[in-house]
Simulated scan of single mutants.
Amino acid sequence: MIGIGIIGAGHFGTAHARAMHEIKGARLVASCRNDAAGLADFTTDFGGKGYLDYRELLADPDVDAVVVALPHHLHTDVAIACAAAGKHIMIEKPMAPTVAECRQIIDAAKAADVVLMPGHTMRFTLPYLAARRLIDEGGFGEMRYGSSRMIKLWMEGNRRNWHLDPATGGGMLFTAGIHALDRLLAFAGRRASHVSAITATSFHEQKADDVALLLLRFGEEAAGQVASIGYADGAFISGDELVFDRGVLAVDFFKGVTLGRGLKWQPVDNSIEQDVAGRALVRQWQAFLSAVRDGTNPPVTAEDGMHVVACIEAAFKASRERREMVVVE
């Protein structure tokens, strides 16, 4: 039985705790939160020991692996400490706010020989997996063009002050638009080489972005675009349109996947389910724990997580300087 610790037993820590109840071979044994009353409520609901200091959780011999679900700017020091304590690490996206910090985390995990997996949950949704299966088996050839969108309400109930400031890794792109960017990168099956972008704060009074439009090049072979928009009022849009050598796919995270060939659209069976996000998180944990048990690389690698951050770094610089930037890791 693998003992799990949650560092950051707040809004999304709760989602992780719920997923734990459905996982065989692992058990939530400890949680950490800097709010004593909130921590007491969390442990009452989900069990396990409660710690106000993450260092005490890392010293607990019952904890074999941790999930870091803290504000973005707190990831680096905590993740490095997790590695030093010999704990396997699932870390919420973004892995860190900068490429340099991502590299520090990766180096620490490699030195400690622990599994490090960034939590890009949408890669474990049924629509993504159905599209991925078609791409891998369907003779589509290469992706030549892709468009991915994350367009949603920004001021949700879990929004905190750190979300609103770029100094603490806030903003729509790092918080939610990153999902659309990661999906596009995963579907492309190659690293982005160049990024141009427009970023803005259009709907809210805050320092961080609530709009980002990215144009990516994958060498000379492919291109893509990402829309990250956190509106003040509207309805949720999340999906991708992918154009391959032989066929197109529309991936809708509310309606499922549709295949386009021969001038006809065909719905793809078994490509949508109830509680898309919750089921994806369960699959994400299953993949992480398999990597821990087997000593293998997880399906979403630390390098994948760093590349997404590199694209975002390039996007913000491209927007400031109004020119295309090379993606640098």
Score class of each variant (00 low, 15 high):
Ala176Gln: 04
Met143Pro: 04
Pro298Phe: 06
Gly189Phe: 09
Thr199Pro: 08
Ala180Ser: 10
His307Asn: 00
Ala291Asp: 10
Val78Ala: 09
Asp165Thr: 06
Gly171Leu: 00
Asp45Gln: 15
Ala19Lys: 00
Leu134Tyr: 08
Asp275Glu: 08
Met90Cys: 02
Gln225Trp: 14
Gly260Pro: 07
Asp62Gln: 14
Thr121Val: 10
Ala84Glu: 06
Phe244Gln: 06
Phe140Gln: 01
Leu242Glu: 02
Val114Met: 07
Gly295Ile: 01
Ser271Ala: 07
Asp60Gly: 06
Val328Asn: 15
Ile4Thr: 01
His194Asp: 02
Asp165His: 15
Lys110Val: 04
Gly219His: 05
Arg18Glu: 14
Ile2Pro: 11
Lys24Ala: 13
Pro71Ile: 11
Leu153Arg: 12
Glu101Met: 11
Val282Gln: 01
Ser271Leu: 00
Gly239Ala: 06
Pro97Met: 14
Arg217His: 06
Thr121Glu: 00
Ile23His: 07
Arg293Val: 03
Thr43Phe: 00
Val251Gln: 05
Ala186Cys: 11
Gly8Gln: 05
Tyr128Glu: 00
Pro298Glu: 14
Gly224Asp: 15
Leu181Tyr: 05
Val63Met: 02
Phe218Cys: 12
Met172Trp: 01
Val292Lys: 12
Thr201Asp: 01
His21Thr: 15
Phe42Glu: 09
Leu58Glu: 04
Leu129Thr: 00
Ser148Met: 02
Arg183Trp: 03
His179Ala: 11
Glu313Phe: 03
Tyr231Pro: 06
Val309Thr: 06
Leu39Val: 08
Arg27Gly: 11
Leu70Thr: 14
Leu216Pro: 07
Leu289Lys: 11
Gly50Asn: 04
Gly157Met: 10
Val66Asn: 00
Pro127Gln: 00
Thr199Val: 10
Gly219Phe: 10
Ile272Thr: 11
Gly177Asp: 03
Lys93Leu: 04
Leu181Lys: 04
Ile105Gln: 05
Ala108Lys: 05
Ala235Ile: 00
Pro298Val: 09
Asp252Ser: 13
Asp62Trp: 09
Asn161Cys: 13
Ala17Ile: 07
Thr76Asp: 01
Gly139Tyr: 02
Asp252Phe: 01
Ala167Thr: 13
Glu137Gln: 07
Cys32Pro: 08
Ala167His: 13
Gly262Thr: 03
Ile91Asp: 01
Asp233Cys: 05
Arg132Lys: 15
His16Val: 01
Ala131Arg: 11
Val309Ala: 04
Leu164Lys: 15
Ser319Met: 09
Gln104Leu: 15
Ala235Asp: 12
Arg293Glu: 15
Gly48Leu: 02
Ile91Met: 07
